[in-house]
Design a protein around this nucleic acid. Structure first.
Length: 432
RNA sequence: GGCCCCAUCAUCUAAUGGUUAGGAUUCAUGGUUUUCAUCCAUGCCAUAGGAGUUCAAAUCUCCUUGGGGUCACCA
């Protein structure tokens, strides 16, 4: 069983989506289920409706999953696990106040050493625990030995007990912390492979330590994906427009192109342009680069063009706001000079807007429009051209430019012989 | 600062220890196109630095430098 575990505290960004994509691909290749686990244990930060939005994005990108679980519904199990750990003396009550801990941290910082829990409550005598009315958290005792695991992309990683530390597993309000809830649920959901971002690397030994303490024996495999950096080489923040899926979509990038890009970077695929379905065939987790990749919007633009070319005329037509095959075909002519659907829309829109009749070629435009309105429909462009020449007496530049303006609403552009068959059915509408 | 990870063109990457260090994107130039764009061709641009191992190092080892991640009663 695989999992994608977003928290409903913010919008989907490309890092999340990439993790979701990889989980989906691996679940297909392994023929295992993929579940969506909404990590909503921090009620303060949860945003109403975000879980739904996340699922909408997954659907839009054709990421299939077998079920959705809200982590908050498992809290009673998490507490039971914590009680078991306390029974086994692997976890203990910690009465340190927030202020006390803050002071410890401040002191560590002044001494320029990493803050670690000082173990103040670890070996409290029983009477001091029972008689203690102060609020308390529950901590897991740090492991006795170092923890190692072999990451599918990073290789073997080892962490010392001191770096794992005696972490809080239950807060004062007795709700589980992230690492604890996560470790427990990976057990409860029978997870076999965890694919997540590199920012979780240091959480992994903690979660392994929790499962070890619970005597869970199944080995869970891990793959930590290098994070995506912005152009400056920093972790992409929510402030970077390009990191927002919503923004990319609104800019006119196709989901299929975004998927393509996110699977392509930091990877060595056999081809550069591909669909998610095609990637299922050859995707290989072991080929993922260990080093972070920088987000390159130019490459995404290139892929977007390629994917626009792959759409059939009807689909493309819908994307630019029409429903006719001809408009789709017309849009295709412009793809090479466009990066996004928005660019394309801007190319098609003028066709159905009023022509300039006051400019240099305004007179010619008026004459040709009038002729079109009183003429019969003409199939062939050359016949149409002949007809206009014969009926209007226009010639040379004074013929070609107005004709181009009437047909395309622009002084330059693609060859009229190519455009004509696609718009001939709209001519009366355009000329009126 | 502690811990962990990483290092080939501007970007994504290729190269069983032996290549002229290859491709794609971007950029520039030229050609085609009665127009713009396309298209085609060409060009620019990289093994972070220093030691070592070896007949031979982008590739193996070590050091330095640089970059990134992470250090919550957030996830």
């Amino acid at each position: 069983m695989l999992r994608f575990a977003p928290s409903p505290t913010g919008d989907m960004h490309i890092g999340n989506l990439r993790v979701a994509l990889f989980n989906f691909i691996m679940s297909k290749q392994l023929n295992e289920e993929l579940i969506i686990r909404i990590e909503d244990t921090d009620k303060e930060r949860n945003i109403e409706g975000k879980d739904k939005e996340i699922l909408d994005v997954l659907n839009l990108f054709n990421i299939e999953y077998s079920q959705v679980i809200h982590q908050s519904s498992h809290v009673k199990f998490h507490r039971n696990f914590a009680i078991a750990l306390m029974h086994d003396k692997k976890a203990f009550n910690c009465f340190c106040s927030t202020e006390q801990l803050e002071m410890d941290k401040k002191e560590a910082k002044e001494k320029k050493i990493a803050y670690r829990y000082l173990g103040r409550c670890e070996n409290l005598p029983a009477d001091q625990v029972i008689d203690n009315m102060a609020p308390f958290t529950v901590r897991l005792k740090k492991p006795l030995k170092s923890v190692s695991f072999t990451d599918k992309v990073k290789g073997k990683l080892t962490f010392e007990p001191n770096d794992i530390d005696s972490i809080i597993i239950l807060r004062q309000d007795k709700n589980p912390t992230y690492n604890f809830a996560c470790a427990c649920d990976d057990i409860l959901n029978d997870i076999s492979l965890v694919i997540r971002g590199e920012d979780h690397v240091s959480n992994t030994p903690k979660q392994i330590a929790i499962r070890d303490a619970l005597k869970y024996e199944k080995k869970i495999e891990y793959a930590h994906l290098p994070i995506i950096l912005d152009t400056n080489g920093q972790k992409m923040s929510k402030r970077d427009n390009a990191s927002s899926i919503k923004w990319l979509l609104s800019e006119g990038f196709l989901p299929e192109a975004i998927s393509n890009y996110l699977i392509l970077i930091g990877n060595k695929p056999p081809v550069e342009v591909f669909t998610l379905k095609e990637a299922l065939e050859w995707f290989d987790l072991s080929k993922i680069s260990k080093s972070p990749a920088k987000f390159d919007i130019d490459k995404l633009r290139f892929l977007n063009r390629e994917h626009m070319k792959r759409l059939d005329n009807k689909e493309l037509s819908r994307y630019v706001g029409f429903a006719d095959d001809e408009i789709g075909a017309l849009a295709k002519i412009y793809i090479d000079e466009c990066n996004t659907l928005n660019d394309l829309r801007e190319k098609i829109k003028p066709y159905f807007e009023p022509r300039d009749e006051d400019g240099e070629f305004g007179e010619g435009v008026k004459i040709i429009k009038k002729l079109i309105l009183k003429s019969d429909h003409i199939q062939d462009f050359n016949d149409f051209k002949e007809h206009v020449i014969n009926e209007t007496g226009l010639e040379g530049k004074n013929f070609l430019k107005p004709l181009r303006i009437v047909l395309t609403n622009s002084q330059d552009g693609p060859e009229l012989a190519i455009v004509y068959p696609l718009i001939k059915n709209f001519l009366k509408e355009i000329a009126s």
